[in-house]
Design a protein around this nucleic acid. Structure first.
Lengths: 174, 174
DNA sequence: CCGGGTCGGTTCATTCATCGAACCAATAGG
DNA sequence: CCTATTGGTTCGATGAATGAACCGACCCGG
């Protein structure tokens, strides 16, 4: 995008957040991380993002403490990018944005629905379970395709895996 | 930013929202509109944004139905930009982002606080009043500088007006 | 040990967006 | 007539995004 710059020191907190996650692609990368995407090649294949941009964004997010980069096998050495607690706290932002798009761009048709794992209740936009009334953490949330899902639009491993219900933050691919 | 492009047709609603409000500066413009900024020159003076970018963004937001451009005097002809209902629905996104920055960049120190006009209770991140428990619409919310406010950083009409408590959406300047 | 393939990058030339200063038109006020 | 204000547009310079090519480390099969 877009920022990373000073962004005028005004509305402290909003501007500070935008400097970190306001750049083009960044929030889509974070969203994929919630879906359980962890590897460079999977982000790449799912987002159609230039490699240089992906590398840069991942590095920025790691430096900001939103993602943790960790080695998951030694030979050949392979790292994966996993959301930290700080990254998981971005969930309300993603939910608020999805909801707005759903209401105002897609005429109220959801392309993904979120359920409270176990209890099975729908999770409302504030993250509260409609059945048991408890706030639902991302880790206890199940995503599934909704009525507006366009299942044919893309065909990559991540898209295919997302056709089945899946718990947030769990690794999506082997 | 950043977008405006196709943005891969994947996560329908999030990507659609980002295409509209994900570009650099856009969300800061919308935030200012919530604060009651309505005129071109006030946005300009407060944000330190290039004029061409401001013109472009305002036009995009009007076309998207987020802002309404309306004539408020005939001679000389002057227009103001006011949030529509669709624009007001962006408030949860701004609140979620401010909150994240407050918690994770500013160590929990708020630079602005929000109160339920009338009842006076603090408004929590979900938009619920801590005193009366009711959901608080932006129009019933009062903004005031918080403990982390840096009142000296800038000096323009908007910044000066924001030093006093003010109701959201009400015109900030004469 | 050689050849081919995969993964996770970097490099680089082109294109596009942002920046900031200058310019401009309409109008008001003196 | 002269000057100031508002709300823009235009334009050259800079910086970021794009996409294709390249690369090094390592695995596997033969």
């Amino acid at each position: 995008m877009a920022l990373g710059k000073d962004y005028e020191q005004q509305d402290c907190s909003l501007a500070r957040t935008l400097e970190l996650v306001g750049e083009r692609w960044t929030l889509l990368i974070v969203r994929d991380a919630f879906y359980g995407v962890r590897r460079y090649s999977d982000f790449l294949g799912h987002l159609d993002i230039p490699r240089a941009v992906l590398s840069g964004r991942l590095q920025t997010l790691v430096e900001a403490g939103v993602l943790d980069r960790r080695r998951y096998q030694e030979s050949p050495p392979r790292d994966e990018y996993v959301l930290t607690e700080r990254g998981i706290d971005l969930w309300p932002i993603l939910r608020a944005m999805s909801r707005w798009g759903e209401q105002h761009v897609q005429n109220g048709v959801a392309c993904r629905i979120y359920r409270h794992e176990g209890c099975g209740g729908a999770v409302d936009p504030h993250g509260v379970c409609a059945v048991c009334g408890a706030p639902v953490a991302p880790a206890d949330t199940e995503v599934a395709p909704g009525p507006g899902a366009n299942l044919l639009r893309r065909d990559d491993p991540v898209t295919r895996a997302m056709r089945r219900p899946h718990r947030l933050l769990e690794p999506l691919l082997p």
